[in-house]
């Protein structure tokens, strides 16, 4: 029992990220409404970001901003700070996500204007005409 508990504790974060990832993917693939697809995309992307930030976590570590001792010397114990590199990557990736979101929403407005709907099957019908 202790084993299992330990196993769950050690991995649950990755699982949650993967579950969210597939929820998002489900939304992107199966949903008929394009807005829902975009929401699925947002969830999908954040799930990946969550996964990557999880890499940077260290037990007992603080935020990756250096602390100083009273005599102004930085405390440089690498195990005391969370891994900064995933944070940097994710910062960039969040920005990319917003950019894609903006473009997707702009396209959505245009689709509504051209086809009069944002339901995928109706659009396909409209295009066949």
């Amino acid at each position: 029992m202790d084993e299992l508990f330990y196993f769950i504790i050690a991995k649950y974060n990755y699982w949650a990220a993967l579950v969210l990832l597939f929820i998002g993917l489900f939304g992107m693939i199966v949903k008929n409404n394009l807005m829902k697809k975009i929401i699925g995309m947002v969830i999908f992307q954040t799930a990946i970001l969550l996964f990557i930030v999880s890499i940077g976590v260290k037990r007992g570590a603080t935020v990756p901003i250096l602390q100083f001792s009273p005599d102004k010397q930085p405390l440089l114990d690498a195990t005391a700070y969370a891994n900064p590199l995933p944070h940097v990557l994710i910062l960039t990736a969040i920005v990319v996500g917003v950019a894609v979101l903006g473009v997707a929403l702009a396209l959505l407005q245009k689709i509504q204007r051209v086809h009069g709907t944002i339901e995928e099957d109706e659009i396909l019908e409209d295009m066949r005409k």
Binding site: M28, K37, I111, V114
Partner: peptide
Amino acid sequence: KAYYATFRYLMMGTI
């Protein structure tokens, strides 16, 4: 009709 095609491309490209 390019908008819808681009939207699909955006979805696939993002995936």
